[in-house]
């Protein structure tokens, strides 16, 4: 689990090179747009995966924290603050509100925790729609400036008007998020998450404080969600309550679960695959959501571990078929 075979790393390297070179072979602005958005959603999804997949707490307020980040950046940059200052501040606010909400709600478990966080999400969404002085009400905030240009000595500056620049911005933050999450999950700290998820009484007995551990995971996840929201606001240029709604949460949740829960790559794959499938289904017109809904049910029944889990299953079958005698230990940690 900790050390990966060489070709595994080679695959990631290839993917990284492909991602870095994407602006040179992307066919049109439409696909470019989907990719940029998927990067942002992947950031939010990975952080949701931290709290749901690795810490085992089904938080349904994730969309709301994404929204807090989005509104935070919108309000602060409209007030004249630089994006580069507003973004960390908005993420911090998101994390702070996360701590405030986490303290009462983490007293509950399972379904109850899911519903309490869902309620918080809905409340924040209603507030976003009605606190007109701060959030602009249902019209939201529009005309949000793009990230301010970064001056580079001797070379001029990087501005964010083009899709290419926005793409690299999103990619940078995604890689940063994945790096941090990877380090976190495979650290002692990450192990305590999983120990607690798998057996809370046992974890408690060996000296892990479940409440503090859960709270830490919740706060970190919300920090990252807020950051994703902040970048989203700046790139899309307008925020309305829909950015903080529970529908956003459900989308992230679908990405996490269908991508493959508790795997870093799963969240990224989910955040890419589902929006692309949605776009591919556009030709169905009125029947699109009908088919998508049915598809969701079928996929979750036949691939309960998501895409990543599905590929693993497939792989195991192939291995079993090739080496009928060898018993392959499942790589799935649940």
């Amino acid at each position: 689990m900790f050390t990966k075979p060489f070709h595994y790393n080679l695959l990631y390297l290839l993917l990284l090179v492909a991602a870095l070179l994407l602006p040179f072979y992307v066919p049109d602005a439409y696909i470019f747009q989907i990719v940029i958005m998927s990067f942002l959603f992947a950031i939010a999804t990975s952080s949701m995966n931290l709290i749901i997949g690795f810490a085992g707490q089904a938080s349904l307020a994730h969309g709301a924290f994404f929204g807090i980040g989005a509104y935070g950046v919108a309000i602060m940059t409209k007030a004249g603050l630089s994006f580069w200052l507003a973004l960390p501040l908005a993420a911090l606010i998101s994390a702070g509100i996360g701590a405030v909400i986490g303290i009462p709600s983490l007293r509950t478990r399972g379904h109850y925790f899911a519903i309490v966080t869902l309620c918080f999400g809905v409340i924040l969404w209603i507030v976003a729609g009605n606190w007109i002085q701060l959030t602009g009400g249902h019209n939201g905030i529009f005309g949000i400036p793009l990230p301010s240009s970064i001056p580079i000595p001797f070379l001029g500056e990087i501005d964010f008007y083009s899709q290419t620049a926005q793409y690299y911005l999103a990619l940078t933050f995604l890689l940063l998020t994945l790096f941090v999450l990877h380090r976190l999950i495979y650290s002692m700290f990450g192990l305590t998450f999983m120990a607690m998820r798998n057996n809370e009484p046992l974890a408690d007995a060996v000296g892990i404080d479940p409440f503090t551990t859960k709270l830490m995971a919740f706060v970190i996840a919300n920090f990252i969600a807020g950051m994703a929201g902040g970048i989203y606001a700046s790139i899309i240029g307008a925020v309305s309550p829909s950015a903080a709604s529970h529908l956003m949460t459900f989308n992230f949740l679908i990405y996490v679960i269908l991508g493959g829960i508790a795997t870093l790559s799963g969240s990224v794959i989910g955040a890419f695959a589902i929006p692309i499938i949605m776009e591919l289904l556009q030709f169905l017109g009125d029947y699109r959501m009908l088919i998508f809904g049915a598809l969701l049910v079928v996929v979750i029944i036949y691939f309960p571990q998501g895409f990543v889990g599905g590929l693993r299953q497939l792989n195991q079958k192939v291995v079993a078929w090739r080496q009928p005698k060898q018993t392959e230990g499942a790589n799935v940690s649940r």
Binding site: I52, G110, A114, L253, I257, D286, G293, L295, L296
Partner: peptide, 17 residues
């Protein structure tokens, strides 16, 4: 349970559509 929840979201999207 979270998987059943996803299935429920699928079902509700289907019914609404």
């Amino acid at each position: 349970h979270i998987n059943a929840f996803i299935a429920a979201i699928g079902a509700l999207l289907f019914l609404e559509a």
